[in-house]
Design a protein around this nucleic acid. Structure first.
Length: 543
DNA sequence: GCGATCACGTT
DNA sequence: GTACGTGATCGCG
C-alpha cells in the first residue's frame, strides 16, 4: 500500500492516489474517489504492507477510511535491523531484490512500483528480523505503535494563538531594547544574530578576553557557556544572552507554532518519526513538540499556550520519574540504588550522601546538585572533564567525585565495563526488548571515536529501554481507551512523558489509570513510578 | 537556492 | 558526556 499526496505543509496535505499491490509484480492504483470500493478490504484483517505506513494510514483516515489487520512497515523493519542506515525504499529494493525502483514521470507508475517493492521486500526483512530475535519487538511493539502514533497525530493539539501573539509583541519589544543597549555598549551597530560579527565585536574590537576561544573553523566561539562566564564582568554579555533567549523563543516557537495550525481543524499536528533516532526514541517535527521550552520563566509561558481542545476538556500530563536511573540500577543490580528507589528516597540525595560520605540529613543543596549531575553523567558515560565543565568545578575535584562514586557504586562501574565488553564482543548493544544499536567504532584506534562508541555502549541500552517501555505503555493505554470507549485522547509523547486531552468527566479515571499503565508496562526488579497532573494547559499539568 | 556552521530548545 | 530538530547567517553558486 502506498499513498501519494500533494506537498502541502505537514497535516494539510490532500490525498491524490493510493496504490495497492496484491501479488509480486501486480499493483493497482486508485484515485481517492474510488477508494470506497476498497473500504471493506482496507478495514479487513489482511496484513497491510507498506513503506511509511503511518503516512498512508493518515491519508486514508482523512478520507474517512480505517485500516484493519496487522501492519508491516518496511521502513520501520529496516530501522530495527540496522537503525543508523538509510531506510529509503529504493535502497532496500536494491539491497534485497537486486532491482532499481523505476522513476517514472507518471506518478501512477511510481506509486505502484513502490507498493510492489514494499510487498516483495517484506519476506526478506521478516527473515532478517527473525535471525536477530526481533520478531516480537516488530510485531508486538513497533507495528501496533504505528496506529497509535497515527491517531495521536490525527488528533493534534490546540494552541492559544492569542497568548502567543501577545508574547511575540513583548519578546520583539524586549529584544529591540536589548539590541539598542548592546549597540550602545559596543559603540557600533552590527548583526547580533551573526556569531561571526558578534565574536569580532566582543573579542577584536572590545577585547573582552585575552585568550578568546575559537571554534573548529577559526571563528570566535560565542556560545552560552562562554558568555555566561563573561557576564560577571561585562554587562554586554548578559544582554546578549537575554537577546538570544528572546529571539530564540520568538523565532523558533512563538512566531512559528501559529503558522503550523491546520486549516482543516484548527489544531497543530506533529509528525512523529519512528525510524530516525539511533536509540529507539521517537522524534517529532513540523513542528517539533518534543523541545517546547520549560526551563526559563519566559519559556514556561509557551507551554501555557498548549491548551485543551474546548471547555469540556483539560490537559493531563503523566511522566516517568527517573526511569533511566531506575533502569541503570536494574541493569547493574545495584543494591544501594534499588533500595533507595524501593523506599521512595530521593536518589540524588542518596548519591550525595554516599559520594560525600555524610549522613542523609547532612546533604546540602550544593552536594545534591553535584550528585544529580554525577547521576546524569553516569548515564551518558561522562568523563571527569565533562562533569567538571557541567558543574563548574575543577577537573581534579570532578575526578575525585567520580572516584568516590565508583567506589561506592562499584556495581554501576561493573555494569558500564560489562556494556563496553559486550559491545566489543558483538559490535552492538541491546535494550530490554532486543532493540539493537551497532557500535562498530568500538574497535577504533582513534581515541575520540572509540570513546564515543563506549559512551553509547553505556547510554543506548538505558535510553533505548526507556523508549521500549514508554512505547509499551502507549500501546496499553490506547488499547484501554479503545476498549472502554473513552472520549479522552493521547496527543503527545515527549520521551518519558505522555500528554492527554482529557474529557473533564474522565479526568479522575485517567489520573488513576494512566500512571498505573505506565508503571506496569514491564515487570522489573525496581518499581517504576509515574507522576500525573491535570490543568487547563500543558505547563500547569506539570506537578 | 543549498549546504555548512553555529547556537540552542528538550530529554 | 546521550538523543534529536530548527532557525539565522553566510559563502558558494
Amino acid at each position: 500500500m502506498e499513498a501519494v499526496t500533494n506537498e502541502a505543509p505537514n497535516f494539510d496535505f490532500e490525498t491524490k492516489v493510493v496504490a495497492i499491490a496484491i501479488a509480486p509484480g501486480e499493483a493497482y492504483c486508485l484515485s481517492k474517489e474510488n477508494l470506497k470500493y476498497l473500504k471493506d478490504a482496507l478495514a479487513g484483517e489482511a496484513v497491510k504492507v507498506g513503506h511509511q505506513l503511518k503516512a498512508s494510514l493518515l491519508a486514508l483516515r482523512k478520507e474517512g477510511f480505517d485500516c484493519g489487520g496487522p501492519l508491516f512497515d518496511t521502513q520501520v523493519a529496516h530501522y530495527l535491523i540496522e537503525p543508523e542506515a538509510s531506510h529509503e525504499l529504493s535502497i532496500l529494493a536494491n539491497q534485497y531484490l537486486g532491482t532499481q525502483l523505476i522513476e517514472s514521470y507518471d506518478p501512477v507508475k511510481n506509486v505502484c512500483e513502490r507498493a510492489d517493492a514494499a510487498l516483495q521486500i517484506k519476506k526478506h526483512l521478516t527473515r532478517e528480523l527473525e535471525s536477530r530475535n526481533q520478531t516480537n519487538l516488530m510485531t508486538a511493539v513497533e507495528m501496533p505503535l504505528i496506529r497509535v502514533l497515527a491517531e495521536m497525530e490525527f488528533e493534534g493539539v490546540t494552541i492559544d494563538t492569542g497568548k502567543l501573539g501577545d508574547m511575540s509583541d513583548e519578546l520583539k519589544k524586549d529584544s529591540q531594547r536589548l539590541q539598542g543597549e548592546i549597540f550602545e555598549m559596543a559603540g557600533m551597530e552590527f548583526n547580533i544574530a551573526s556569531p561571526k560579527q558578534l565574536g569580532e565585536v566582543l573579542f577584536d574590537k572590545m577585547r573582552l578576553l585575552d585568550k578568546a576561544k575559537k571554534t573548529k573553523t577559526g571563528q570566535y566561539a560565542t556560545g552560552e557557556d562562554i558568555l555566561t562566564k563573561l557576564a560577571g564582568e561585562h554587562e554586554i554579555a548578559k544582554k546578549i544572552l537575554d537577546f538570544r533567549e528572546d529571539e530564540k523563543l520568538r523565532s523558533t516557537y512563538v512566531d512559528v507554532l501559529p503558522r503550523m495550525i491546520s486549516r482543516f481543524d484548527g489544531r497543530v499536528h506533529t509528525d512523529y518519526r519512528q525510524a530516525v533516532a539511533a536509540t529507539g526514541r521517537l522524534s517529532s517535527n513540523n513542528p517539533n513538540l518534543q523541545n517546547i521550552p520549560i526551563r526559563t520563566g519566559k519559556g514556561k509561558r509557551i507551554r501555557e499556550a498548549f491548551v485543551a481542545r474546548d471547555k469540556e476538556h483539560l490537559i493531563l500530563s503523566a511522566d516517568y520519574s527517573q526511569i533511566e536511573l531506575r533502569l541503570a540500577a536494574v541493569f547493574a543490580k545495584d543494591a544501594t540504588m534499588l533500595e533507595a528507589f524501593k523506599n521512595g528516597r530521593d536518589i540524588h540525595t542518596t548519591t550525595a550522601s554516599k559520594v560525600f560520605k555524610v549522613d542523609i540529613k547532612e546533604v546540602t543543596s550544593d552536594m545534591r546538585r553535584k550528585a544529580k549531575e554525577v547521576n546524569f553523567g553516569i548515564l551518558y558515560g561522562s568523563t571527569a572533564f565533562g562533569l567538571a565543565q557541567n558543574i563548574g568545578i575543577s577537573k581534579t575535584e570532578a575526578a575525585e567525585i567520580i572516584e568516590a562514586y565508583f567506589k561506592e557504586f562499584s556495581t554501576i562501574k561493573k555494569y558500564m565495563d560489562d556494556s563496553i565488553n559486550f559491545a566489543r564482543e558483538h559490535e552492538y548493544v541491546e535494550t530490554l526488548l532486543g532493540r539493537r544499536r551497532y557500535l562498530r567504532d568500538i574497535h577504533s584506534r582513534n581515541q575520540t571515536t572509540r570513546g564515543f562508541a563506549e559512551r553509547n555502549a553505556i547510554n543506548a541500552p538505558i535510553q533505548g529501554s526507556a523508549a521500549d517501555i514508554i512505547k509499551l505503555a502507549m500501546l496499553n493505554i490506547q488499547q484501554w481507551v479503545k476498549q472502554e470507549k473513552l472520549k479522552s485522547k493521547m496527543i503527545m509523547q515527549v520521551h518519558d512523558e505522555l500528554v492527554f486531552d482529557v474529557h473533564k468527566e474522565e479526568a479522575d479515571l485517567f489520573k488513576e489509570h494512566v500512571p498505573w499503565l505506565m508503571k506496569t508496562a514491564v515487570q522489573l526488579d525496581v518499581t517504576l513510578d509515574a507522576e500525573v497532573a491535570v490543568a487547563e494547559n500543558w505547563f500547569g499539568a506539570h506537578g
